[in-house]
Design a protein around this nucleic acid. Structure first.
Length: 218
DNA sequence: CGTTCGATGCACT
DNA sequence: GTGCATCGAACGT
């Protein structure tokens, strides 16, 4: 069962892939604008997609939690490149995390995708999430958490540096806008914990973590 | 409910 | 060698 936080926007709209210029803006602006958009991975095994309901911003070498904090390295090179590119890396030796690179080339920043509401390819997601002989999680948990969503969508280092406006990997606008979002501190960090650079769709059951904070906007 | 802790690979110092 | 932008099982209250 798919649980949306809100009813679909009445006005239907053909899926529109976000263009590169969408990402060439201030990272907090992009982070907020990504809520409600749909991440799609068209893999050989099938299509899987989900609505973005939780993100975090990582901005520049002055952000101690950003991978660009040490300056340019082999791993963080995509952050310094053009916007609209997927930056994928291996975390804790076992989870792939996917970011959307933002801001013009030379300005290292990105938005981490932390949770999706599954839309397409639920069976595929269940198979990918149940590999260890365990039962698949509930549908709302399939893409809940940054490591879980990459697992469910089949995103690995093979997708690192792929454009998000391409044919295999894409973020689309399907005409759905969140009614309310909230900003709070980022999760799982030991540095840079004071910045409120995490945004989520209020009321979505797919959001990771627990109860939250202030609200804004519609 | 809550908190603690092990798994597991690699970038970076 | 150290420390992760995590997850889920195990245990305590």
């Amino acid at each position: 069962m798919i649980v949306n936080s809100q009813p679909p926007t009445p006005k239907s709209q053909a899926p529109r892939t976000l263009r590169q210029s969408f990402y060439a803006r201030p990272t907090l602006t992009v982070a907020e604008a990504l809520l409600g958009k749909v991440l799609v991975h068209r893999a050989p095994e099938g299509i899987a997609s989900g609505r973005i309901v939780e993100v975090e911003a990582y901005i520049g070498e002055d952000d101690p939690a950003c991978h660009a904090a040490p300056g340019p390295t082999a791993r963080n090179e995509p952050l310094y490149g053009p916007p609209g590119i997927a930056y994928v890396y291996l975390n804790y030796g076992m989870h792939y995390l996917v970011n959307a690179v933002t801001e013009p080339a030379g300005s290292p920043a990105a938005v981490l995708l932390r949770a999706l509401e599954p839309l397409e390819g639920l069976e595929l997601m269940r198979r990918r999430r149940a590999l260890n002989g365990n039962a698949a999680p509930a549908d709302t948990d399939l893409c809940r958490g940054p490591g879980n969503l990459t697992r469910a969508l089949g995103i690995t280092l093979a997708q690192n540096r792929l454009p998000l406006y391409g044919s295999t990997l894409a973020i689309e606008d399907r005409g759905w806008t969140p009614q309310a979002i909230a900003w709070s501190t980022r999760i799982g960090l030991s540095v840079g914990i004071e910045r409120e650079w995490r945004a989520h769709v209020v009321g979505s059951r797919a959001v990771s973590g627990k109860a939250l904070k202030v609200e804004r906007r519609t």
